[in-house]
């Protein structure tokens, strides 16, 4: 039951960080696909591997990190087979990143328009003065900023405006896939909604797909179509957002959703007892079993694969 074709296919992606104490298995052979025009949320706690996935898709993993295995196919092109130069061209044009704290990545001594020009020039797009001004104004307008922002320096902008400038740069070459890694984690809740509205607006304007990485389940519920839940380097559940919140399948997803405080009713805080396992020398079996209320003997020996157990709902758990 896949109504829309896949834009991105990721299979068996495995990323390790090689340290003096051994390999940290940050991403442990995960597979998923992103459909055309969809917003896909990637959720997990710190250290679950979600940002590493973003970097791996863009081939931006730096030593001691290394992509061990995996195939990443974007719109028919196998990204890992591209030359370094080919990959550089694919970034921004095919797949763009709005990084965590992207607003602090703006160059403090360049005006906004110069930073937009950098991206275009780097991809061989040299526009004449007039055409460039028009393009910048269009880009700023699409993220809800006035054209005079083009002449400002980053320090003259608020956090929300800077984040929108970063979105404008990310879409400047009309990518097919936008990866937004915690794009609003440093912003206030009111500004967060404005930035999210902007992201959704440019996405539908471009017809692009979005991977939204984060840990705020509320944000996921409001913004994305499907959610992938990461735990200790594994993708443990992939479900449409409505199904996930109505009937989460994986015990971790269930506890995670139960731990969310409500604004409607006072109740005791329910945490998830225990800690995620060390990613160094990962034990065999299910990574969640030490914290799982349903753990069985089988969970200690056999790692459950991610399988489709309901229409469009996938889970990695022996209960199903």
């Amino acid at each position: 039951m896949t109504p829309t074709p896949a834009l991105l296919e990721v299979s068996d992606l495995r990323v390790h960080y090689h340290t003096s104490r051994g390999a940290v298995q940050a991403v442990n052979g995960i597979s998923f696909s992103i459909r055309e025009g969809e917003r896909f949320g990637l959720v997990g706690e710190s250290g679950s591997g979600k940002s590493t996935i973003a970097l791996a898709l863009l081939r931006l993993i730096r030593p001691p990190g290394k992509i061990e295995t995996g195939r990443v196919v974007l719109d028919g092109v196998a990204l890992r087979d591209l030359s370094e130069e080919g990959m550089r061209r694919a970034r921004l044009a095919g797949i763009a990143l709005v990084a965590q704290g992207a607003m602090n990545s703006l160059n403090p001594i360049l005006r906004v328009k110069e930073q937009i020009r950098d991206g275009l020039n780097d991809h061989g797009l040299r526009l004449s003065g007039k055409a460039f001004e028009t393009r910048v104004a269009e880009l700023l307008a699409s993220v809800g900023l006035k054209r005079d922002v083009a002449d400002l320096f980053p320090h003259e902008l608020s956090g929300g405006m800077k984040q929108r400038v970063c979105i404008a740069i990310a879409i400047s070459l009309k990518p097919k896939l936008i990866i937004a890694d915690e794009p609003t984690s440093a912003l206030d809740v009111v500004v967060q909604r404005q930035v999210m509205d902007t992201l959704v607006a440019v996405q539908s304007q471009l017809g692009a797909s979005v991977i939204l990485i984060g840990h705020d389940m509320g944000l996921m519920a409001q913004v994305v179509n499907r959610v992938g839940i990461m735990y200790a380097g594994d993708l443990v559940e992939v479900s449409p957002v409505a199904d996930l919140f109505r009937e989460p399948l994986h015990p971790y997803s269930q506890l995670l959703i139960a731990s969310l405080p409500s604004l409607h009713q006072k109740e005791a805080f329910q945490g998830i007892p225990g800690l995620p396992p060390s990613l160094l020398n990962r034990p065999a079996g299910c990574p969640f079993r030490s914290r799982c209320p349903h753990a069985m003997e089988r969970c200690a020996v056999e790692t459950p694969p991610l399988r489709e157990v309901r229409p469009d709902q996938r889970v990695a758990c022996h209960l199903y």
Binding site: V190, G218, A221, Q222, V223, A242, F245, I257, L260
Partner: peptide
């Protein structure tokens, strides 16, 4: 405004 801006963890309760 503040309360209305909090994304509710319920997809059926739109922002």
């Amino acid at each position: 405004l503040l309360i209305g801006s909090i994304p509710s963890a319920d997809p059926n309760q739109p922002w």
